[in-house]
Write a protein that binds this DNA or RNA. Structure first.
Lengths: 131, 131
DNA sequence: CTTGACCTTCCGGTGACTGGAAGCTTTATC
DNA sequence: GATAAAGCTTCCAGTCACCGGAAGGTCAAG
């Protein structure tokens, strides 16, 4: 099948699929007209990567996971290690964002948000020594 | 003062300060030798931006906030609007990350992580129809 | 007078795409 | 057979907020 169909079946934009080929994540064949030809397993691999990306794995993680997936002699410990590291990263990012949101929430709550110039948000940014 | 001192007082890397000048966030003067010369208010503005960045504001938000800060005729509603929009974005990102982390946590918990190839993580990525 | 710290600009890279231009091929319609 | 629309190709540039490094100028100390 051509790229459009592969795109529809995987939910990935055609541009993204071309990009994945460029960086060697998939290697579809080529027809005599130069068009990419996607096999069922190409589509399967693309969908695999698409789902991994939805879970926030980096493209390099996706590459590693795909290799493991295709390796019948793999050890599940390998995949778990990658997933655990990623999970820790996500939790880290969440806690940093949580802190930002909390601080920001306090500032927003303290701001009248009217036509007057006094603003605890701007004041706090100007000198945050009080926190 | 020179860039190194400005960097030390604001906690921003010299590279970042040069970048902020390039995009017009600050406009330090220049000495006869071509070196940047930072006034107290330059440093103040840089610190302002640095704190806004720590709260996750985009550089463009920082520019807007800085302009408001310097505008004595501002209305606090303006600043509040920016902060609220940003807060919503952060909350969005948190909830997306929270979903990822939850899904990922379940997969990690279900994976033995030993020398055997069976792996619910890889299996789930290969076909996530079951969730 | 040299050493080392500091400063300058410019170029390229990051991650994971996305948009758009210029130019093929294929398919459908008249 | 002409033409138009859809779909394909490659390549270039841009995104965001910087960071690293090269090549070279300047300044203070010994």
């Amino acid at each position: 099948m051509n790229i459009k169909q592969a795109s529809e079946r995987t939910g990935l934009p055609a541009k993204t699929i071309r990009y994945y080929e460029e960086i060697g994540l998939v290697a579809p064949g080529r027809g005599s007209n130069g068009y990419r030809v996607f096999s069922a397993s190409d589509v399967h691999n693309l969908a695999f990567v698409g789902r991994a990306r939805m879970l926030g794995f980096t493209v390099e993680d996706c590459r590693a996971l795909l290799l493991l997936y295709q390796d019948s002699a793999r050890e599940s410990a390998e995949a778990k290690k990658i997933a655990e590291a990623h999970l820790r990263q996500i939790e880290d990012r969440i806690s940093k964002l949580r802190e930002m949101a909390d601080t920001l929430g306090q500032l927003v709550a303290a701001c009248a948000g009217d036509q007057r110039p006094e603003c605890p948000i701007l004041g706090s940014l100007a000198a945050m020594e009080d926190r």
